[in-house]
Design a binder for these strands. Structure first.
Lengths: 215, 215, 215, 215
DNA sequence: AATGAATGAGAGTTCATTCAT
DNA sequence: TATGAATGAACTCTCATTCAT
C-alpha cells in the first residue's frame, strides 16, 4: 500500500517529453481526422489535454507542429516497412512486400494518409524531405538490384525518376482504392497484381535476361 | 434604316459573361500563385478588377469558384493534349506524346499544377470527377491497344489500376522535376526516357510478343 | 376572337398602379412570413415578379414600403371590423363582436399579425399612427356609451387608458392563443368569455346602475 | 507566514466574471438604446471596453447574448417588484402596488423596455420563458385571491387569459405613456386610476359580494 | 418605366498568438 | 512550466442602393 521508493513518477524532463508527445500525437490525430487546414491549435490542445498556451511552450507556431508531423510518422512507417520486409527478398518480390507493408501500415494508421499527402500543401519542406528520404532508401535498394543484375538498361538518373513513379503509384493507389473508402482499408489483390506486373516487366529483368524466358 | 454595327461595345449579356470570365481567370491565377487556402475572395476580386460584392453575383460562395476551376482548366488541358497528339500514334509512342503534351501544357499554364493537385483537398468533388474523366478516356485508349494486341496479360480491372499509376507518375514527375522549380518548366529528357522505358517494357508487348525480339 | 376595341388592357397609369400594388402585396406577404428584419428587397421583388431596380421606382427605400404596410392592411382590418359588427349592438355585446371580428380577420390574414406587432420596432411612425387611429375610433364609440349611461365613473383621459388596455388585450391574446400556434387560428371560447367578463364588469354598468341587479 | 489579504485585485476567475458582466451590461445598454436589430457586436464590445474577439470567449454568438439579456434583467425586475410590494397588501391594492413597482423599475432601467418587448421578435425563446414565469407567479397570486373570496366567477383557464391581459396592459401603457417620451418616465396618475378601476371592478369582488354594497 | 449588374460598407465570426498570472 | 483570457487582423458573405442601358 505504501508508495514505492521510486522518485516522482516522472522527472521534470520526462514530463516535458510526455507533454510534447501528447501534443504531437494529438496533432497527428486531428490532422488525420480533419486535415491540416482545419487542425486548429485549440482542437489539438483540447485533445492533448493541455491549455492553449502550453502549445507554444513546445512549438513555436502551429506551422511548426505541422512540420514535425510527417518526419515523426514517416519514420514510424519506414521502420514498419523495414521490419515487415524479409531481408532475403529481392527483385519484384521485394517490391511486392514493400507495397503490402505500406498498405498494412496505412490500414493501421489511418491518420497517416492525410498527414502524408496533404503535407505537399501544408508542410512542403517536410514533404520534400520525406520524399528525399524515401527516394534515397530506394536508391540504395535499386542500386543493389542493379549490381545483382536484376535491373538492366536504366541509368542512375533514370532510376531516380522510376523511384518517383513508384512512390507516385503508392500514393494514387491508396487514394483511389483505399482512401475513397469502399475497400475497408485493404488493397484489392488485382491492384497488387497490376503493380507487381508493371514493375516486374518494366523494371526487373527475368533471370535469363530480357527476351529470355520471360512471361 | 440600318443600325450601326455595334452600339454598345458589348451587350449586357456579353458584359456579364465577360465579368464571369474575369473572375474565374483571376481565381485561377490566385489559386495557382497562392494555393486554394490563401485564395481569398478579396484577392480574386482585386485581381479581376471588380468589387467584392460582384463576386457573389456570379458565384454562390468562395467554394463554388473553386469547384469550377478544375473543370474549366481540365477541359482546356484535355483539348490541348488531344490536339497535340497525332492521331496515328499508337502504343508507347502515343504514351510519350501524351506525357510531353501534358508537360507542355503545364509549362504554359503554371497555375494548373496547384489547381489540379490541391483540388483533392479543396475541391474533392471536382477532383474525383476530373480523374474519372481522365481515367475513362484512358480506358478507351488502352482498350484499343489491347484489341490491337499491343497490350497483353492485363485484365480490365488491372488496367484500371495501371491507369491510376500512369496518372500518378505524371503528377509526381511534375512535382519533382517541374514544380520544384529548377528545370524552368521543362521535363528533363532522361525522365521522359525513364517513363517511356517503364511503360514500354511494363505494358506494351513488343511486336513479336513477349520474349520475342524485344530490346 | 378579335381584340376588343377597348384600349390596351391597362392604361399606363393603371399598369403603374398595378405594379405598385404587386410590390406592396409582396412586401406584406414576405413580412408576414419572415418578419420585417428578413424582408429583403430582393425577396420582395422576386415575389412580385419585378426587377430589383423597379422597386425604387415606386418606393424611395425599403423603409418606405414598411411604412406603407400597416396603413394599408390596417385600413382593411378596420373595414372588416366595421362591416362585421352589427350597427345595433351596444355595450359589452359590441365589444365582444369587435373582438371576434378582429380574430376572424387575423385568421384570414395571417400576415397581419407580424405586420402589426413588429411595426412598433420596424415602422414606429406607422405603428403609432395606427394606434392613434384605432384609439380615436374607440373614443367615439366609448363616448357614445358614456352618453347612453352604459359607462360610468371614468373620466375621458381614463377612458383613453382603458382603450389602450383593450387594444393591449387583443394583442397579447392573439400572441398567446393564436400565434403560438396550437389553436389553429381561432380564439378559445373561454378566452373570449374572460375578455367579455372583464370588460363587462370593469367597464360597463349594468342597466340598474352599479350594484343593481348585476351578476 | 501568512498571505496578505489580497494579492491581485481580482483572481483570474473574478476577472473573467467581471468581463462577462461588462459585456452583458454593455449589451443591455446597446439594445436598450438602439434595439436588438442595431446592437452589433462591435458596438457592444466598444462600450464594454474589450476587443471584439473577447466577446466570443464569453458568448457563442450575438444571438446568445440576446438570449441572456431578458432572463438577466427580468430576474432583476421581479426581485424589484417583490421587494417593493408590501406583503400584507391584497386584492386590487396589491395590483396597484405591482403596477407602480413595475413602472418604477422601468423608470430606473430605461433599457428594459426594449429588451423586454423586442424580445418577442429577437429572442423569442427567452420571451416566452419570461412570460411563462410572470404568468406562473401571477397564477399563484390570483389563486390565493380566489381562495380568499376576493375573486369570483372566473374559471382557472379564464384567469390565465386575464393574466395575459393584465400583462398586456402593462406593456401597452408603458408603450403609450412612458416610452413615447413625454411623461419623463412616470405613469400619469389617471392612468393608474384607470387600471386600478378596471381591475377592481372587473376582477375583484367587493367585500359584500357582487352587487353588495359596492360603488 | 423596367432592368439587373455593380457597388461597398458593414456585419458576424474565427483563430493564431501573446502574456500576465 | 502551465494556464487561459485577451487580442485584433482577416475572413466570408449580405444587401440596400445606384445607374447605365
Amino acid at each position: 500500500m505504501h508508495r514505492p521508493l521510486k522518485q516522482p513518477r516522472m522527472t521534470r524532463e520526462e514530463k516535458a517529453r510526455d507533454t510534447y508527445m501528447r501534443i504531437l500525437e494529438a496533432a497527428a490525430q486531428v490532422v488525420g481526422d480533419d486535415g491540416y487546414a482545419d487542425a486548429s491549435v485549440s482542437k489539438i490542445t483540447r485533445l492533448a489535454g493541455v491549455a492553449q498556451g502550453t502549445f507554444y511552450n513546445y512549438f513555436e507556431s502551429r506551422q511548426h507542429v505541422f512540420d514535425k508531423l510527417l518526419p515523426y510518422m514517416g519514420r514510424q512507417m519506414l521502420d514498419h516497412i523495414r521490419a515487415s520486409v524479409a531481408a532475403e527478398l529481392t527483385g519484384a518480390d521485394r517490391e511486392e512486400a514493400r507495397l503490402r507493408a505500406f498498405f498494412a501500415y496505412l490500414a493501421q494508421h489511418p491518420a497517416f494518409y492525410r498527414i502524408l499527402y496533404e503535407a505537399e500543401i501544408f508542410a512542403p519542406r517536410a514533404h520534400a524531405e520525406h520524399f528525399r528520404l524515401l527516394a534515397d532508401g530506394y536508391k540504395g535498394a535499386l542500386g543493389r538490384a542493379v549490381e545483382r543484375g536484376e535491373i538492366q538498361g536504366y541509368s542512375e538518373p533514370e532510376l531516380e525518376a522510376v523511384i518517383y513513379m513508384l512512390l507516385a503509384a503508392r500514393a494514387y493507389l491508396s487514394m483511389r482504392y483505399v482512401h475513397d473508402g469502399k475497400g475497408g482499408g485493404a488493397l484489392p489483390d488485382h491492384v497488387i497484381d497490376a503493380y507487381v506486373k508493371l514493375v516486374t516487366r518494366g523494371l526487373f529483368t527475368p533471370p535469363g535476361g530480357p527476351g529470355g524466358g520471360g512471361g
